[in-house]
Simulated assay, not measured.
Amino acid sequence: MFENPWKTLRKKSIYQNPWIHLEEHDVLTPAGKEGIYGKLHFKNKAMAIVPVDEEGNTWLVGQYRYALDEYSWEIPMGGGPIGLDLLESAKRELKEETGLTAAKWTEVLRIHTSNSVTDEEGFVYLAQDLTQGETEFEETEVLQIKKLPFSEVVEMVMRGEITDSISIAGILKVARILGL
């Protein structure tokens, strides 16, 4: 396949908490010059869910995103510990954030969220045959839930009202799958 043109000389742990680990790497660049590279490792896999009911509706989750310092509308999503079944984590997230359970699950997308500085990997699922139940928000979550026609959510993406990368990719992929 392709050979890595970068050479790692040394790695140094800069910071870590239960969710992330930041490293600084001393490297030789592809041009053979010494340099540094920062790498952010996530301790969870990202997973997102596009729930679609029989009438063609979906659900968005709105919340204030601390790192962005702004409000964000997104598909339901969260993190699943590496090594645990991703689908089970996705089912948990959908229930927590929307109260929904689904009888049919389809993995539709694998995505790297920002491959220049992080190794974060995300997965998007299409959830169908939905049953509504009660939400189970985490203590750090203050969420708004919107049920909208899926076609309207696609238009929100096209107007730039949804900016989260996993949400955009998941919504557009599901739109293509469903022929919308």
Results as ranks from 00 to 15, higher is better:
Phe2Arg: 12
Asn4Val: 01
Pro5Glu: 03
Trp6Tyr: 08
Trp6Arg: 03
Arg10Asn: 01
Lys11Ala: 14
Lys12Phe: 08
Ile14Asp: 09
Ile14Pro: 09
Tyr15Asn: 04
Tyr15Asp: 02
Gln16Ser: 13
Asn17Tyr: 02
Asn17Ala: 05
Trp19Gln: 15
His21Cys: 08
Leu22Lys: 02
Glu23Asn: 15
His25Met: 05
His25Pro: 10
Thr29Asn: 08
Glu34Ser: 00
Glu34Phe: 00
Gly35Tyr: 10
Ile36Ser: 09
Gly38Cys: 09
His41Cys: 12
Lys43Val: 09
Lys43Phe: 04
Lys43Gln: 08
Asn44His: 14
Lys45Val: 02
Met47His: 07
Ala48Arg: 04
Pro51Trp: 01
Val52Leu: 14
Glu54Cys: 12
Glu55Leu: 06
Asn57Val: 12
Asn57Cys: 11
Asn57His: 12
Thr58Leu: 02
Gly62Ser: 12
Gly62Trp: 07
Gln63Arg: 06
Gln63Val: 04
Arg65Pro: 08
Arg65Gln: 08
Tyr66Gly: 03
Tyr66Ile: 07
Asp69Arg: 06
Tyr71Glu: 09
Ser72His: 03
Ile75Ser: 02
Pro76Met: 00
Gly78Arg: 07
Pro81Arg: 12
Pro81Lys: 10
Pro81Ser: 12
Ile82Asp: 03
Leu86Thr: 05
Leu87Met: 04
Leu87Ala: 08
Glu88Ser: 09
Ser89Tyr: 08
Ser89Val: 15
Lys95Arg: 11
Lys95Phe: 05
Glu96Gln: 13
Glu97Tyr: 11
Thr98Met: 04
Gly99Leu: 04
Gly99Gln: 01
Gly99Ser: 08
Ala102Leu: 05
Ala103Glu: 14
Ala103Val: 09
Lys104Val: 11
Trp105Lys: 02
Trp105Cys: 04
Thr106Lys: 10
Leu109Asn: 01
Arg110Phe: 05
His112Tyr: 09
Thr113Met: 02
Ser114Gly: 14
Val117Cys: 04
Thr118Ala: 03
Asp119Ile: 00
Glu121Phe: 04
Phe123Leu: 07
Tyr125Ser: 13
Tyr125Thr: 13
Gln128Phe: 05
Gln128Asn: 08
Asp129Trp: 00
Leu130Ser: 10
Gln132Val: 04
Gln132Phe: 03
Glu134Cys: 07
Glu134Pro: 08
Thr135Tyr: 01
Thr135Arg: 15
Phe137Asp: 15
Thr140Asp: 11
Val142Phe: 14
Gln144Ala: 11
Pro149Val: 13
Pro149Gly: 05
Glu152Lys: 15
Met156Asp: 10
Met156Tyr: 15
Gly160Gln: 00
Glu161Ile: 09
Ile162Thr: 11
Thr163Leu: 11
Thr163Arg: 13
Ile166Cys: 05
Ile166Tyr: 12
Ile166Ser: 11
Ala169Gln: 12
Ala169Arg: 01
Ala169Ser: 15
Ile171Cys: 09
Ile171Ala: 02
Val174Gly: 03
Ile177Cys: 03
Ile177Lys: 01
Leu178Cys: 05
Gly179Thr: 04
Gly179Ile: 01
Leu180Met: 02
Leu180Trp: 08
